[in-house]
Computed example of a mutant assay.
Amino acid sequence: MNKITSSSPFTLAVCAEMVFRDLPMLERIQRINELGFQVEIWDWTKHDIEALATSGARFSSMTGYVTGTLADAAGADEMLRTAAESVEVAKRLGIPRLNLHGTGLDGEGLPVQPCQQMTGAMWLKARDTLNRLADLGEQHGVTFVLENLNTEVDHPSVPFARLEDVLALVESVDRPGLRIMLDIYHAQIGEGNLTEWMRRCGPYIGEVQVADVPGRCEPGTGEINYPAIAKALSEMGYRGTVGLEGWASGDDDLALDRFRAAFEL
């Protein structure tokens, strides 16, 4: 099958965990690749890495740790240990960006270590951990990206989840090995005022992820004006990756067509 060309100024990617779910993972990845998209995966320990490495697909990002947390000593050491393992897998697959959260998430997206209030000591430890991760990324030529999440609907009690917190941490570290995974879906639920947040985060964006609100499906199924988001990103000078991390509202191929159309200018 010939790949579909796009007039988008961005590199478009699709999360294989969330579309074509009636297919085995390798077939999903091959299908996404055939349609001309890069591929995002989540926990690499759940995949056949050799099969992925020989699939012919191009990968945009994956989860950059297996276990651990940002803001306590034992959890930080564990995050660094599993991040180092993740880097080796990323290099095998040619994955440039490794995704981070304030703490590990379970199968339902809930925090392994819930946190109701972050202390000053936690902020300092999180910054130290992110500096260590930036060291690791810069040493191996990959970028760690800290993702904003929403705590109202999907990820209650995750520490350092709000975009305001993510930007503060990444800005304070200010290293090329650490950037923001700017998730527009989560930002709409958590903060709103999307265009202004994109501009504030602009110098630190490593990748943009999208899905519509409510429902976390493809652009055009909810309240976010994604053509306006695409225009604003382009006018900011962003030319990086935009990844669909959302469910298909119905037909998967149609969902991916809608995603592509929303980011063509």
Rank of each mutant, 00 (worst) to 15 (best):
P219K: 03
S172Q: 10
G192N: 02
R260C: 03
S249R: 05
V153E: 08
Q30F: 08
P24D: 10
G206N: 06
I49F: 04
E223V: 13
E196A: 15
D252M: 04
E17M: 09
V89Q: 03
I49W: 02
G137A: 06
R97F: 10
K46H: 12
H186P: 01
E34Y: 09
Q188W: 01
D252A: 10
D252V: 05
I95L: 05
V158H: 01
E171C: 10
P214V: 02
I95S: 02
I41K: 03
D253N: 13
L182P: 05
W42M: 13
E40V: 09
L105P: 04
C201K: 06
D135K: 08
W44D: 03
A261G: 08
F59R: 02
I41G: 02
G94P: 01
A71S: 14
L23W: 06
I224D: 00
W197G: 00
C217W: 05
V145F: 04
V89M: 01
I229A: 04
I4H: 11
A168N: 07
K3L: 14
M79E: 06
P96A: 07
P114D: 10
W247T: 14
R132A: 15
G243E: 11
M236Y: 10
P9Q: 10
R258A: 09
S8P: 04
L136S: 06
A121D: 11
A211L: 01
S157N: 13
L70S: 01
F20D: 04
E245N: 00
F59N: 00
A90C: 08
M122G: 05
I95M: 00
Y185N: 06
V242C: 08
V14G: 01
N2H: 11
F10P: 01
P24L: 07
V39I: 07
E223G: 06
V173A: 05
R81M: 09
A73Y: 11
A228M: 11
P24I: 07
E88G: 08
G222H: 00
H101C: 13
H47W: 12
L163T: 06
P203E: 10
P214I: 01
T103D: 08
K91Q: 14
M1C: 14
R162S: 12
V66Q: 13
P111M: 10
E207W: 07
P159R: 01
V89H: 01
V145K: 03
G192K: 01
A51D: 09
P176Y: 09
R199G: 12
D212S: 05
R127M: 08
M181W: 10
S7Y: 11
V112R: 11
E191Q: 06
Y238N: 08
G56A: 09
E50T: 13
E245A: 02
Q139R: 14
M198W: 05
A57R: 00
C201S: 15
A83G: 08
R260F: 02
L35V: 11
D128R: 12
N148E: 03
A74D: 15
L265G: 15
Y204L: 12
C115V: 15
P111Y: 07
D77Q: 15
L233G: 04
E218W: 02
G64I: 04
E27R: 11
M1A: 15
A126T: 02
I189W: 01
T63S: 12
A126R: 00
Q113T: 15
E138H: 06
V14T: 04
E40S: 09
T45C: 10
A51K: 12
